[in-house]
């Protein structure tokens, strides 16, 4: 058994603003999750996209966590591309529940008024797409998101 494994979860995003829930089980042969990298085929799809997940029902990243923090361009050296968690996360056979939300409706954000700019993430954020004929960011749908989870026996 090797001491490292890159476990992948592939999601297909079919429409702007789509939220995809996913479940997975970590490979039993590896004790800890060391890092994560989210691979997106289009740079424009990074803006506004969020990814949260829980491991064995304990939150690791909240649902509003930006994918921007979990990805990198090809200008970053391969050994630096993964986001490494600040502590060892016990994984062995643990179940992952996650949620990915596409952010390409970002330009359609609703102005929440003048009283305060701090907004409730649970609030409906987007204007209706009805009559909106162009894709604001030019993101091509569908696209696939590959979530790479770095498992180790460290």
């Amino acid at each position: 058994m090797k001491s490292n494994k890159f476990q992948r979860i592939r999601l297909r995003v079919s429409a702007a603003g789509e939220t995809i829930r996913f479940n997975a089980v970590c490979d039993r042969g590896f004790r800890t999750i060391k890092g994560i990298f989210v691979s997106l085929p289009q740079d424009k799809a990074v803006q506004g996209a969020t990814l949260g997940f829980r491991l064995n029902n304990v939150e690791v990243l909240d649902d509003g966590h930006e994918v921007k923090n979990l990805t990198a361009t090809n200008s970053v050296a391969p050994n630096s591309k993964f986001f490494l968690f600040p502590e060892k996360i016990e994984a062995a056979g643990g179940s992952i529940e996650g949620r990915y939300t596409d952010g390409s409706k970002y330009p359609l954000l609703v102005d929440n008024g003048e009283d305060s700019g701090v907004y409730d993430p649970g609030k409906v954020n987007f204007k209706t797409l009805s009559g909106y004929t162009t894709n604001p960011f030019g993101v091509v749908f569908p696209y696939d998101v590959v979530i790479n989870i770095w498992l180790t026996n460290d």
Partner: peptide, 15 residues
């Protein structure tokens, strides 16, 4: 409970 947390605040800038 993890030993770390990324606490977020979201602001919306309207103008």
């Amino acid at each position: 409970m993890r030993g770390f947390r990324y606490q977020q605040v979201n602001l919306r800038i309207s103008r």
